[in-house]
Simulated scan of single mutants.
Amino acid sequence: MPETLTPSATVAFLRSPRAIRERCRALLELGLAGRLAHFQVDMSRLPGVADFVLDVTRESYPSLDIPVHSRWGHFDVGGVRRNAQLEARLAALPHAERARAKLDLVITSVLLDAGSGPSWKYVEPGGGTYARSEGLAVASFHMFLSGAFSSDPKQPLQADAEGLRRLSLEALARGFQVTADNPLAGLEGRLALLQGLGRVLPRPGALYDLLAARGARVTATEVLSQVLESLGPIWPGRVTLDGVNLGDVWPHSALGAGDHPDSLVPFHKLSQWLTYSLLEPLEEGGLRVTALDALTGLPEYRNGGLFVDAGVLVPREARLLQEAFAPGAEPIVEWRALTVALLDEVGKSVRERLGMTAEQLPLAKVLQGGTWSAGRKIAAQKRPGGPPPIRIESDGTVF
């Protein structure tokens, strides 16, 4: 990044998928040269990862009809057709209002999706028991349907500013069945995000109107840009530049001095996960989203754990597999950056094996097929209960 960029231009750059890829790729290049402090990179193991990802993909999607990696698939976990239940309740609404309602649901659900911790679970009334991301999805789905995020009892199927700002820790804990015996990591952080959301938008579904104002076609990068601009102020305790909260952006000493923008590595994991999850309702509302592959892979513990467990990323110190780290700790920043860059490489390898183009199999489908499930599967093979190989102290706002 040229040093002549103004602060505002630097902020815009750090909010772009191009910046994510460039900074993460720069750290991968340093890793390949053996110049990183925390991980060695063994690219000889990468073909095996691509083979494993393809095997997992074929198990789940034999016809290779793979959806985009988004929150919507989690809502139907356990073979329960919850999405159809939602569709039935929204059927009488115009397309645009259905899109707004679905954005209300999926935005609140994604913001509640940071790592749950190893022992939390959700027991669905009259149904199954779910943990981790799927459990968080089902819990947030039922909270939404019950009107927990709406200030208007006559309009329960929405989230609005007043309803989100008034949400209490007790109500959130009750909705997620949190008790002393069923603790959920980062509950306060999750509440802060939802309350913050209520301060920046009249309702989450207002993103539909902001994007529709751009025209009937928007790029995935434009969607991400709008998400980052609209939701930027809600992220707590983050790096700021020119008075702007950068969100999921962290320094790494290998790229520059800690007080210089060159050291900053952007990820925007939850914002990109959210962007992927907005595509379906936006298109239902009449907006066509293009250039999906501009977005990057998601640097979270399933994708990142895949590369550690498969031996592509080798920790230089045993403590990386023994201690728990804060999201901003440099080993975690390094791990996440290498994960983003390696996901691009896996995507290329999987497409080559299938003879498909990036348009036919964008990275979002490789993730879904894919790397996330492969990370979970190999973790279950290696450790009882399937926790990730590296532990993060979740504050409920990053992973």
Rank of each mutant, 00 (worst) to 15 (best):
E3D: 15
T10D: 00
V11M: 03
V11N: 04
S16P: 04
I20S: 03
I20F: 00
E22Q: 14
E29A: 14
A33W: 13
G34V: 07
L36E: 01
Q40P: 00
Q40A: 15
V41R: 03
R45K: 13
R45I: 00
L46A: 13
G48Y: 05
V49A: 02
F52G: 09
R58Y: 05
D65Q: 14
H69C: 11
G73T: 08
G73N: 06
V77Y: 04
R81G: 06
Q85M: 14
A88Q: 15
L90I: 14
H95I: 02
R98W: 06
R100S: 04
L103Q: 09
L105N: 10
T108D: 06
S109G: 13
D113N: 15
A114R: 04
A114K: 08
G115L: 11
G115M: 07
G117W: 04
K121E: 13
Y122V: 03
G127H: 04
G128K: 11
M143T: 02
M143V: 04
S146C: 01
G147M: 11
S151P: 13
P153H: 08
Q155S: 14
A159Q: 09
A161H: 08
A161D: 10
L164M: 12
R166G: 08
R166P: 01
L167C: 07
S168T: 15
S168I: 04
S168V: 03
A171C: 01
L172S: 10
L172P: 05
R174H: 12
T179D: 09
L184P: 03
L184N: 10
G186H: 03
L187P: 06
G189I: 08
Q195E: 11
G196P: 08
G198K: 07
V200Q: 06
P202W: 10
P204D: 09
L210P: 00
G215D: 10
V218L: 02
T219Y: 05
T221H: 12
T221I: 04
E222N: 10
L224H: 08
L228E: 01
G232E: 00
P236E: 13
P236T: 02
P236L: 10
T240D: 11
G243V: 13
V244Q: 09
P251H: 03
L255C: 07
D262P: 00
L270K: 02
L274A: 09
L282H: 02
E283V: 01
E283I: 00
E283N: 06
G285M: 07
R288N: 06
A291W: 05
A291T: 00
L292K: 00
L292Y: 07
A294M: 03
T296N: 14
L298I: 15
E300Y: 04
Y301G: 04
N303R: 07
G304S: 13
F307G: 10
V312D: 09
A318R: 14
R319N: 09
L321D: 13
A324C: 09
A326L: 15
P331W: 04
P331F: 09
W335S: 05
L338I: 06
A341T: 06
L343C: 14
V346S: 03
G347C: 01
S349H: 13
V350A: 02
V350F: 03
T357M: 13
P362F: 05
Q368F: 01
T371W: 00
S373D: 12
A379I: 09
A380H: 12
P384G: 01
R391L: 13
D395G: 05
F399T: 12
F399E: 14
F399Y: 15
